[in-house]
Simulated scan of single mutants.
Amino acid sequence: MTNESTQPKIVGKLLELLKKLWLQLVALYHPDNLKKQGTKRSVILITLTILFPFILIGWWWSTEPNLFDVQAIAQRQATQHNEQIVTGYITTYTLITIANTLLDKSGGYLSNDIIPPSIFMDDMPNWEFGVLQQVREFTKVLRNDISRSKTQSLEDPDLAKAEPKFNADNQSWFWSSETQYQEGIEFLTRYLRRLADPQNNTAQFLTRTDNLRDWLEVVVKRLGGLSQQLSASVGQLRMNTDLAGDINQATSSSAELQVKTPWSEIDDVFYQARGTCWALIHLLQAIEIDFKNVLEKRNAIVMLQQIIRELEMTQKAVWSPMILNNSGFGLFANHSLVLSSYISRANIGIIELYNLL
């Protein structure tokens, strides 16, 4: 009885407090008060008032999506559509979920926005680009290798339509990038429906060793490039190894190169690498399930799990308000070098896995 009587009093006090705050705000922005404050103070007050909600929205939209359980979401999807989880189902639906995350995360897809606050944001658009690169590259391998039994076999019609959609300009506003990517997701979903239909044998997902190697080869190059860019945040004088092993090189090049990522691009590379690793974690987890037989034959499951663990370390929260870029052994941290170390270790593991297969 006491609780029931105190609840209306608490609500009444809260309403009274909100009313007082509202009256104070109205008085603060009243023309008479603005005149008393003077032109300079009034302009500052109004500017801060406009910027404050933009800063809050920008902070919220810059929040990176959490990792998800690839097997759990695939099981939930199969249950909803009364489908069986066949080989390739988890990997394909993981790819679809990654692509959907680009469009459905907080703030939606930001890379092609032309209005505040997203037009002033670059961290999340670079994260999106890292994720998008993995969607593009895996869709290409799925179309050209995993879904085809032979080099001269017909390609899957839905995958043939999906891949070009994901290769649309990621910053296009007039020809909306989101529309193109959504159509690509729909084509992937059609492929998934046919793959899960026991009465339909037109879709294939072939878990051969060479198919897995084809994708891993692409991943190795991607992670290697990102690791180099991240390491170059402090600037290095490197030996030029770009044409190493090519005895028939057509152009001459200097033996040494001064490599340094421009200061304005350090956080861009950092968040692009974070997005790449976020997508790779899920794809590798799905591969572990669908390519289980191939991996078990080479006793490579533990190796793959360690690669995933290294990549998961790249997703730790960044507590600093900005990406620090101190020298390698300086007083303060260098976030790019820390991220590069995890990516390099994961990349070495992928190279070893590639050679083992």
Rank of each mutant, 00 (worst) to 15 (best):
R213M: 12
R213K: 15
R213I: 07
R213F: 06
D214E: 14
W215L: 05
L216K: 05
L216R: 04
V218Y: 01
V220L: 10
V220H: 05
R222D: 06
R222Q: 09
R222H: 08
G225Q: 01
G225I: 00
G225N: 05
L226T: 00
S227L: 00
Q229M: 11
L230A: 03
S231C: 04
S231K: 10
A232V: 00
S233H: 01
V234G: 00
V234H: 01
Q236W: 04
L237C: 07
L237Y: 11
L237W: 09
R238H: 06
R238T: 09
M239L: 13
M239H: 11
N240V: 01
N240M: 03
L243E: 15
L243I: 08
L243Y: 13
L243H: 13
A244L: 14
G245Y: 06
D246Y: 10
D246L: 09
I247G: 11
I247L: 13
N248W: 13
N248L: 15
N248A: 15
N248V: 11
Q249E: 14
T251V: 14
T251G: 12
S252C: 09
S252P: 09
S254R: 13
S254M: 12
A255R: 12
Q258Y: 13
Q258W: 11
V259D: 08
V259E: 09
V259N: 04
K260Q: 15
K260V: 07
W263V: 15
D267L: 02
D268E: 12
D268H: 13
V269E: 03
F270P: 08
F270T: 08
F270S: 09
F270M: 08
Y271M: 06
Q272Y: 05
Q272G: 12
A273D: 04
A273E: 04
R274N: 07
G275A: 09
G275K: 04
G275F: 02
C277H: 02
C277G: 08
W278K: 11
A279Y: 01
A279F: 00
L280H: 02
L280Y: 00
L280S: 02
I281C: 06
H282I: 06
L283R: 02
L283V: 05
A286Q: 04
A286M: 06
E288M: 10
E288P: 07
D290H: 05
F291V: 02
K292G: 02
K292H: 12
